[in-house]
Nucleic acid binder design. Structure first.
Lengths: 141, 141
DNA sequence: TCCTCATTTTGTAATCATTACAAATTTATA
DNA sequence: TATAAATTTGTAATGATTACAAAATGAGGA
């Protein structure tokens, strides 16, 4: 589906800014921050304001066209709205996706609760960074 | 185990500030923020500085004596280090614990990754707030 | 086409949690 | 007691996010 129709299907009028921001997220699956999105789009839309990026992302989130990753210092964005987990590498800062096939929770403690968002967020060191560190140590002596 | 021994067992020298902060978390299972902790302890330790609270919590987290809940606007703290999920009510702000009996992830995408923290964070509206809202609507007309 | 109203965008100025940093205090050790 | 190390403290940044009002844009009717 075209980005315009995606927006329309959720009742969002497709302004240039909204189209470009959503399109950026659909094409760049790097879980960018507000600042990354802004820096990458301000070339194409020279008048773009960071407030617009904030406003638009809040709207897209509300309409469930995107989901957010609550990171330590900032929020990162993901156009993949399927339920999945995120892994943040504390070394290089990259955020990886990983699938979740099943999660069993004892529902009794939050029975009758109305759930709106589910976040699965792991932190640690990714394989690339572990290897990099190992190599560095190996080169010593 | 006494709080002092708990600290010692992880190699943390048990200063008054550290004892009181950890003890506060052990006794008040409300997932408090830095500010809540500070406000509640400054009566007992009049010289207490917010920086100390930050420093201490970072230390306790590093030593795995506590875990953190990465909330939208701030970090909240939990002395229960067992793996479990958190539910944040967007209406009243309370954070509930819930047990997780099993979580199956397709490990292949993050194979050989070194995991240090796992966060399971749901948001929505808790049963109390749903009921409250229902009652309010019922009282109308 | 022009006018008017509603929507969207923009820029600036707050807000607020967190961090940086260096001085002051406390504790441990010789 | 004297000295060094560890801990605490206060103040000043930092930086993401929000508030808010003005400016720009777009839709619909006369």
């Amino acid at each position: 589906m075209r980005t315009i129709d995606l927006l329309k299907s959720k009742g969002v009028s497709p302004s240039q800014q909204r189209i470009q921001i959503l399109e950026y997220l659909l094409k760049n699956k790097i879980h960018p921050s507000v600042d990354t999105i802004f820096q990458n789009l301000v070339n194409q839309i020279p008048t773009l304001s960071k407030t617009t990026v904030y406003n638009t992302l809040a709207l897209l989130r509300e309409k469930q066209l995107i989901q957010v990753i609550i990171d330590n210092n900032e929020i990162r964005y993901d156009a993949d709205t399927e339920f999945h987990g995120h892994f943040k590498c504390l070394e290089c800062g990259a955020i990886y996706d990983f699938p979740i096939s099943e999660i069993k929770i004892d529902i009794s403690s939050i029975e009758n609760f109305q759930i709106s968002e589910k976040h699965i967020y792991y932190t640690g060191i990714c394989a690339l960074c572990i290897k990099k560190k190992g190599d560095e140590n190996g080169n010593k002596t």
